[in-house]
Write a protein that binds this DNA or RNA. Structure first.
Lengths: 219, 219
DNA sequence: TATTTTCCTTGATATAGATCAAGAAATGGC
DNA sequence: GCCATTTCTTGATCTATATCAAGGAAAATA
């Protein structure tokens, strides 16, 4: 598969000149992950950052007592993760696990840093950081004010768009974790939504009532 | 008061050369805020970013239904806020309110952007963004796994250090909001902690049992 | 295909923290 | 120093969601 072509489809790299993209392509290292495979563990030493090309990866963090695992973010294709390695720390602060078969590019730290010398690239990079920050801010708000139902639709909207049919491609238990709910809670929620006709999850496909999204706050 | 001297004490600007700091000082605009004064509202048009010099400012966000107000972050002296304005949006995504008398510097957008041309400054700026991101990530984790008690001590540790006497200088209701609890809940928590001797909040001062911090997970 | 393992559902129960209410204390303005 | 307003406390009640448990479905493995 052509690395250059894939890069031109990512939010981060597409606005760059063809030349810059070529330079980036030369430093990228491809890696394929199987479902449930761990890319790196919280605390592991790291020498570079990653770009998710396809699939889905979850970043999680154990809490101090070590009992529960918290999903910090579920990474979507086109997103960069583990940027902390660039300046901040030489250890990954989270664990990255593929939720389904995924393809990532690895960019060695030093080579990536030299790319930042380019003005366009740098601005785009900063912009990406700000966007991510905004996402976290938003997530924080949602966690505090929303109930499970809101969280579910908020998640679906964010990740698949406000569509009537969605093929999530992840297990219910993983979705439950992503919206910070117990699997049982999600199960009960889905039952309730099915009963009142707003949503049906069947054969790996979610069907949402026509017009629902118009009434739901944000997409 | 001397802007230059104040700048050299902030995390962001102190590593810069004297010359860079002088340039920055020339574009900074001072502004004093009284307790409870609003600096800007969510949705307001913005033309620059802010640096908190002294005092304490809370960034909050209304939820869509508009009923509740969520504290996203309480800004500490030396921190920059409203950076989104630089590239992302021309509207502030949060509301900024001074919790006590505060001093801020305002940096007009265009002039600040030209500062980013300097390599040292830019790296420091990116580092700051990454730190903030890590903070939000941490906050997210804490919200999900911690109970109010943990949240209280986590907050105190983060904001004042793991000390035995702390002068918070903010109202209990504001502290309650910062740890996402109802004022009543904090009140009850404090009573419980007083009874078992771990913490006493009296005359605007918090006294924590000797050795407590050693047993408390993180500082 | 058979079998083991993982995932999902449903019920019963527990609980942290929110909300409502109303009096007490503190704070600020004049 | 006095009144008004804002905070703080304490009690009673409510609710969403977690947790525990156990049977059934689906998926992976042999």
């Amino acid at each position: 598969m052509n690395i250059l072509a894939l890069l031109s489809h990512t939010e981060l790299f597409s606005p760059l000149s063809e030349g810059s993209r070529e330079r980036i392509a030369t430093i990228a290292v491809e890696k394929t992950l199987k479902k449930n495979q761990t890319l790196f563990l919280e605390g592991d030493r790291g020498h570079g950052i990653y770009l998710l090309v396809s699939g889905n990866i979850q970043l999680s963090k154990a809490n101090p007592s070590g009992d529960r695992n918290v999903i910090i973010k579920s990474v979507k294709p086109g997103e960069i993760f583990a940027e902390v390695i660039l300046f901040e720390s030489d250890k990954y602060p989270v664990t990255a696990t593929a939720v389904k078969k995924s393809l990532v590019f690895f960019f060695p730290k030093n080579q990536f840093l030299s790319l930042l010398e380019s003005r366009d690239f740098r601005n785009e990079f900063i912009l990406m950081l700000l966007r991510k920050q905004r996402y976290l801010t938003e997530r924080l708000r949602s966690l505090i004010t929303m109930d499970v139902g809101d969280k579910l639709f908020h998640y679906l909207g964010q990740h698949y768009g406000a569509k009537e049919r969605i093929v999530p491609g992840i297990a219910k238990k993983d979705l439950a974790a992503a919206i910070d709910a117990a699997p049982e809670t999600l199960s009960r929620l889905l039952l309730r939504l099915k009963k009142n006709g707003t949503l049906l999850w069947k054969d790996g496909e979610i069907i949402i009532k026509r017009g629902f999204w118009d009434t739901f706050g944000q997409a």
